[in-house]
Amino acid sequence: MKHLTYADRSVLTGDEAADILVELSAILAETGHADSVTLNALGDDGDAIVAKFVLGTGTNLMSASTTSQLPEPENREAVAYMNEQIARLTIPAAAVPSDDEWHSAEPFEANL
């Protein structure tokens, strides 16, 4: 478990979700993009909560370790989403000709 501190509030969530949220936040800021991510977390009182984080340039987000023995909240879908966003922002897209370019090409004729 890790503490996620955002603005003036701190919540507990799983290690993987916290680490990927911080990584995505940094990539979004670096690339000039923004996004929002919803995580299942534990509030100050230990109750299960749903926390929505708005990420972008200027986001102040910190992840810190904890000794909590509580079970980690389920965030499989959020982690998958964040991994997809990180891949989309960091892996260059393949160059593919447009339909117009593809159909307007002259047919190839071999001179034998």
Rank of each mutant, 00 (worst) to 15 (best):
A17C: 09
A51S: 08
E16P: 05
I20P: 10
E23P: 00
G56Y: 02
A18V: 07
A17G: 07
A34C: 10
A34S: 15
E23H: 03
G32N: 02
G56T: 08
R9M: 11
V22W: 01
G46S: 09
T59G: 08
D15S: 12
D19M: 07
L12N: 07
F53V: 01
L28I: 05
A48P: 09
F53Q: 00
T31C: 04
A7G: 14
D44V: 11
D47R: 14
G14P: 11
F53D: 01
A17S: 13
G56K: 04
R9P: 04
L28H: 00
G43C: 05
L24S: 11
Y6N: 08
V11Y: 04
T59Y: 02
I49W: 05
D35I: 11
V54N: 12
I20V: 15
I27S: 00
V11Q: 03
A34H: 13
A17I: 10
G32H: 01
S10I: 10
G14R: 06
A48R: 11
L55A: 04
T38S: 13
A41F: 06
T13M: 07
S36P: 08
S36Y: 13
D8N: 14
E16Q: 14
L28Q: 04
A41T: 15
L4Q: 02
T38D: 06
I49C: 13
D8M: 09
V50M: 11
T59M: 04
S10R: 10
D45M: 02
L55K: 00
E23K: 07
N40L: 08
K52L: 07
L12E: 12
I49S: 06
A26T: 14
S10T: 15
H33L: 11
A26S: 14
L24F: 08
R9Q: 15
I27K: 00
V22F: 03
I27T: 04
D44S: 13
G46K: 03
S10K: 09
G43M: 02
T59P: 05
T5P: 08
H33N: 15
V37K: 10
D45F: 01
G14I: 12
L21T: 07
G46N: 08
G14T: 13
T5Q: 11
T13Q: 08
I27A: 00
K52T: 15
L42Y: 11
D47P: 05
Y6L: 06
V54A: 12
G43E: 03
Y6E: 06
I49D: 10
V11R: 01
I27W: 00
V54P: 01
Y6F: 15
A7E: 15
L4M: 08
K52W: 00
S25G: 09
G43T: 06
D47W: 07
T5M: 09
V54G: 06
A48H: 09
A51I: 02
T57R: 09
E16N: 09
A29R: 01
T31R: 05
T38M: 09
G56A: 05
F53C: 00
A17H: 04
K52I: 08
G43A: 10
V50I: 15
T38W: 04
S10L: 04
D15P: 05
L28D: 01
V50S: 14
L4A: 04
D8K: 13
L4K: 03
G56R: 03
V50D: 12
V22G: 05
N40P: 06
